[in-house]
């Protein structure tokens, strides 16, 4: 603890305490409660007795009947997270470098790339459902030039890839803005020095841009990982809640807890949904912490 220069500590305590109370009451307490209800058979209805069932829900997750389905969801989730994180960061950096130059219309281009972020999942889902309409969407027209056709989101081999594509399309905006910010913070002199040393374009990128962008990279990679591991809305609006080809852990939580009878004929099982939440939390936290530690170390070394 370093010395506090401002005299009375009460203002610090009051405002810090206020923030802490809001976070604890409205975010931490409900999150901890999720852990607790994952050990119960709670349903979404009042007046129904709630029983402690111990590890039953966890056993069910790993039961013979479910394990195949859950492993599939896990596999899809990891593919989704890895591919979209890598692509969003690689493309985001490339576009940011491009749009950081003195080009006419770069402001317009920046705005256009950021648009999907504002439009939201519902609009994005509608646009791409129209676009990949197998009977007469623009994509079908392009396919037909090559004498091919496809069911697109209905094709079990293609569906996950297309959802990832849309996720990348939609997620680039934030990454570009953060990378642009990072790029503009790099002093020009460093590039000039590199020029005088006769560095090639690739060397400039590797030796100047990437190291100085390290904090932006950390922020972007973390945002992309957490976002892709937790988001189910895109898969949901594009391919529905029960498509095995695009089944994600986060989507399974949603349909278990809230899909109820309308989608599967099964009752809502919020205890089980909480169990999947907990398992997902463990996966997300392990993945994010590993990446965070790795990136922080790199930053420190540079």
């Amino acid at each position: 603890m370093s010395t506090y220069p401002f005299g009375a500590r009460s203002p610090l305590r009051i405002t810090f305490g206020f923030g802490l109370v809001v976070l604890v009451v409205f975010a931490i307490v409900p999150a901890v409660a999720v852990f607790l209800i994952s050990f119960t058979d709670i349903r979404g209805l009042p007046g129904i007795p709630v029983n402690w069932v111990g590890l039953d829900n966890y056993e069910r997750f790993f039961s013979a009947a479910r394990i195949g389905y859950n492993v599939n969801a896990l596999k899809n989730t990891l593919i989704y997270a890895v591919v979209s994180t890598v692509a969003i960061n690689a493309l985001g950096l490339a576009i940011a470098v491009l749009l950081n130059q003195k080009l006419r219309g770069k402001t317009f281009a920046r705005a256009v790339v950021f648009l999907p972020t504002i439009l939201g999942v519902t609009v994005i889902g509608l646009i791409w459902s129209l676009f990949f309409n197998p009977s007469a969407g623009p994509a079908a027209t392009v396919w037909s030039w090559f004498g091919a056709d496809s069911a697109f989101f209905g094709d079990p081999n293609l569906a996950l890839g297309l959802v990832i594509f849309v996720q990348i399309w939609a997620g680039l905006g934030v990454a570009v803005v953060i990378y642009l910010a990072g790029l503009q913070a790099i002093p020009e002199e460093l590039y000039e020095a590199a020029d005088i040393d006769g560095a090639s374009g690739g060397q400039r990128l590797r030796l100047v841009t990437v190291p100085l962008l390290a904090p932006s990279i950390t922020a972007n990679v973390l945002l992309a990982i957490v976002g892709s591991l937790q988001s189910y809305q895109l898969a949901y609006v594009l391919t529905g809640p029960n498509n095995p080809a695009t089944q994600l852990l986060s989507l399974a939580i949603f349909s278990q807890a809230f899909g109820g009878s309308s989608t599967s004929g099964l009752g809502q099982s919020q205890g089980y949904a909480a169990t999947i939440s907990v398992i997902q939390f463990i996966i997300v936290s392990v993945a994010s912490l590993l990446v965070l530690i790795y990136l922080r170390r790199r930053e420190a070394r540079l």
């Binding site: 603890m1 370093s2 506090y4 610090l12 810090f16 976070l23 409205f26 975010a27 931490i28 307490v29 409900p30 999150a31 409660a33 999720v34 852990f35 209800i37 709670i42 979404g44 973390l222 957490v226 591991l229 937790q230 986060s250 939580i253 807890a257 809230f258 919020q270 949904a273 909480a274 939440s277 907990v278 997902q280 939390f281 997300v284 936290s285 994010s288 912490l289 965070l292």
Partner: peptide
Amino acid sequence: RGYLRWPRLWNALFVVMLFLPNALITQ
């Protein structure tokens, strides 16, 4: 700035805020 006790605890809290589980039911 380190003006508070238990800085590690608060930093850990900040990291945890990143990926809290979906707590819709309990909220």
